[in-house]
Design a protein around this nucleic acid. Structure first.
Lengths: 340, 340
DNA sequence: CTGAAAGCGCTAACAC
DNA sequence: GTGTTAGCGCTTTCAG
């Protein structure tokens, strides 16, 4: 039995509150957890005591008793983290943190070392978190999917392998957004529309190309003006050069991301062509590049903060046992600037 | 007494290990915590049992018993988080996470709501973390400083008010780096060097201007070509226009950050001047803008990953009771590209 | 050097 | 409705 010594204790405990309110610890616990069966006046007394003592429950003790941690892990593969030149990632974290701030969950950031993947797996499997969020920009890596059996997991971005059943993920509608972007070009009267696609082993690369094809097909336009890049600016410049060297007239370009669009700008300008008069350009992501380039780039805005918040929301609901769809697709908007 | 039921228990406990190794829980605990006074062979037996069971200690239980959480909170003011177009922040988080990955600490990200600052304060004061890291880009906001009495805190960036004693922080040597950048310009033969300074209510704004002045003074150069911006690109364009309108010949510019340097580019180009022939430009931060602009910008590289790692290191040492300096200053390097 | 026992602060049956 | 009573899994004196 704990002896009374709340006198100079730095942090008050539930016991202190109980003593002050003249009730048992169990009752205080009930009040703290919002149990319905407590007399209103008792609730009031206890609430007052809590306020007076500035009491805050001890997470570890609660966690130990309930066998729940109230922790949500955010797993970021080291390689993704290294791409710190990527605001997309920071926005997702922001979205997750903002959503969780209104819940009783705490955000635990883990950088998953690729050399010691077990460390992360063991951490997650050992009851250190109630659920996990896995983000790996562009890659569609669901290598943590098998942990899904021991722990609720929600992924950012669809898996590369569509056939993986059971895993939960939130993704942006890349196909529809790419289609929308291409249609914008078509509606402006462009007909010879090229595309610089992303790597075809990454979902966004595949989906954005598919969206371009869909729009082109719907208008009976030629789909041969395709070159591939790796999402880096330099690859955009090179791809655009190859496109230009084909000798076929081109009046518009849809690049699978802004960085490659920015790279393409260089090739277009060095060829003595102007944007958007000779070639209209649309990108994807709405990152730094989009605002920086001259002229500012028309592009697809990634709802990255919302993506993070939605991932957190889906996970929290899963943990709560509420039914949620395995797949959540978020729409992305076209932002029209001066390159089209 | 817990009844034996490790059979189908999902996660093994210390008790299970003890049973398997044929020792008491206390001994297993000693082994797990690396106590020196345990017979080598017992250590071995226990270690084997741990490995066989794939045992991982329960953090909550340990935390409850030791009264330490092994959690480090990373506090990001909401306004800073909103600036998700800022890779600087993401890099700091990365540095912190990478450093902590090798320790027994866990990273807890908190977005401090500016409307409910008490929520964060109470969280920190209620023993939910063993220490906190506070980052507020550019602002020098040390409003959490008073919590320093109840919890070890390390800040990123020096406080605006130099006279605040007692608080610990890690910062980049803005003065020296700005001086170095300006000297680079001087060594290239430039003499009429202007500067677009940052807000003077933010430490980096003050320090970078001071560095410019130091270099100019050392060479007896005129220090009147100063205009101020707010670190955003647009303000750089406007400041540069004002500088140009003065009618004084200018052959170089030191901008307090890359975004303003990028903004200045526009003004320089629209005036029909060339970079670097007519005006050489140096920025600060080495962010997206630095690589994106044409020509690529010579700038000061922020050691942001290292800054994060150092903050974490200082905090961990403080918690461990090791002596650490209140102030840690990191050097920043000049990256020479084509704008000078 | 190792084991026994007493909690860390909280929740959750189970009685009253 | 409210109190009593056991623990949650681990650390830590204190004996031996």
């Amino acid at each position: 039995m704990t002896t009374e010594q709340q006198a100079n204790r730095p942090v008050p405990t539930l016991e202190d509150v109980a003593a002050l309110a003249g009730v048992s610890r169990a009752t205080v616990s009930r009040v703290v957890n919002g149990s319905p069966k407590v007399t209103p006046e008792v609730v009031e007394t206890v609430t007052a005591a809590i306020a007076q003592l500035n009491y805050v429950p001890n997470r570890a003790a609660r966690s130990l008793a309930t066998r729940r941690t109230q922790v949500i892990a955010l797993v970021v593969p080291e390689s993704t983290a290294r791409v710190f030149a990527d605001p997309f990632f920071a926005s997702i974290v922001q979205g997750v943190a903002l959503y969780l701030a209104d819940t009783d969950y705490t955000l635990n950031m883990l950088i998953a070392s690729e050399t010691h993947p077990d460390k992360t797996r063991r951490y997650l499997m050992s009851g250190n978190a109630d659920g996990a969020l896995v983000v790996s920009h562009h890659s569609g890596d669901h290598s943590y999917a098998h942990l899904g059996h021991s722990l609720p997991i929600v992924f950012g971005g669809r898996p590369l392998n569509k056939s993986k059943p059971g895993s939960y993920f939130v993704d942006v509608d890349n196909v529809a957004a790419a289609e929308r972007a291409t249609l914008h070009l078509i509606h402006q009267g462009r007909r010879s529309i090229a595309t610089i696609a992303g790597p075809q082993d990454m979902p966004p690369g595949v989906d954005r190309l598919a969206g371009w094809r869909k729009a082109m097909a719907a208008h009976g336009l030629d789909q041969s003006l395709v070159e591939f890049g790796d999402f880096a600016p330099q690859s955009g410049t090179e791809a655009m050069r190859r496109l230009l060297e084909r000798g076929v007239p081109i009046d518009a370009l849809f690049a699978a991301n802004d960085q490659m669009a920015g790279g393409a700008y260089s090739a277009i300008l060095e060829a003595g062509l102007s944007i958007p008069d000779d070639i209209a350009v649309v990108g994807f992501d709405d990152d730094y590049y989009a605002m920086t380039t001259a002229p500012p780039l028309t592009t697809v805005h990634q709802p990255s903060v919302r993506l993070g918040a939605t991932m957190a929301e889906v996970l929290v609901k899963r943990i709560a046992g509420e039914p949620v769809d395995h797949v959540t697709i978020l729409p992305a908007e076209l932002v029209i600037r001066q390159s089209t």
